[in-house]
Amino acid sequence: MPKKSSPSFEQAMSELDAIVEQMESDQLPLEELISHYERGAKLLNDCESTLGAAKKRLETIKNAGTKSSSTPTTRAQTNTPSSSDDDEIRLF
């Protein structure tokens, strides 16, 4: 039997919402409630894993951008005067 592929994050969230709605309706027999709970727990775990991976990717991107923009520059590169008496803040 082929392994089922995991649903996308959005599909998992949608299915999770539907499961919660069904469980809150108080119309399901106990065995179905347990089955829905198990499925919901798996979907929740999948969603948390996806969000964790996305957060790590965003942190990596953020850190890469911070490292490249925080490289030291010399006065020649910034074209700012070297006068120590210059209290004016230069933006450009």
Rank of each mutant, 00 (worst) to 15 (best):
S49Q: 13
S6T: 06
E31N: 01
Q77F: 00
A41C: 10
E88K: 03
S82N: 05
K62W: 06
A18P: 08
Q27P: 02
T50S: 12
T80D: 08
H36I: 02
I19C: 01
L51S: 08
E38M: 03
S68D: 14
M23C: 10
S82C: 00
L28E: 07
L91T: 05
L28Y: 00
L91C: 11
T71G: 12
K67M: 10
D86S: 02
K67N: 12
L91F: 13
S49V: 15
K62V: 04
S69D: 04
K56F: 07
K42W: 08
E48T: 13
P7I: 02
E21M: 02
N63G: 06
P29K: 07
K4N: 04
G52F: 04
E48W: 06
T60K: 14
K4V: 08
F92T: 07
D86G: 00
L44G: 12
A18T: 09
Q22W: 03
P2S: 12
Q11W: 05
S35W: 01
G65S: 11
M1C: 05
P72D: 02
L30Y: 06
S69T: 12
T71Q: 14
L33I: 10
P81H: 14
D87K: 01
T74S: 00
E21H: 04
T71Y: 03
T74K: 03
A18M: 10
E32C: 03
A53V: 11
E88H: 00
K56P: 02
D17A: 11
S70M: 11
G40I: 06
R90C: 09
D17V: 10
Q77E: 12
P29T: 08
A12F: 00
S68Q: 10
F9I: 15
P7V: 02
G52L: 08
E24V: 04
A18D: 08
H36F: 01
M13Q: 11
G65Q: 09
K55P: 03
K55A: 14
R57D: 15
K3G: 05
D85K: 06
S5E: 08
F92Q: 11
K3P: 03
S83V: 00
V20G: 05
S84D: 03
E24K: 13
L51R: 09
E24Y: 02
K55F: 04
S8F: 01
Y37N: 15
L30S: 09
H36S: 14
L44F: 14
I89W: 08
I34Y: 07
E15C: 00
L30R: 08
L43N: 01
S8N: 07
L16Y: 11
S8V: 04
N79D: 09
S49C: 15
A18V: 14
N45R: 14
S6Y: 04
T74M: 07
E31P: 01
T60C: 13
E31Q: 07
A41G: 06
A53K: 13
T50E: 11
T60S: 14
K62I: 10
N45K: 15
T78G: 00
E31V: 04
S84E: 06
R90I: 12
F9R: 12
S84Y: 02
D17R: 11
L44E: 11
R39E: 07
T78L: 03
S14F: 04
E21K: 03
T66L: 13
V20F: 06
D46L: 14
A54N: 15
N63S: 11
A41N: 08
E10P: 05
A41F: 08
D46M: 05
S49Y: 06
N45G: 07
L43Q: 01
V20P: 01
L91R: 11
I34K: 13
T71K: 13
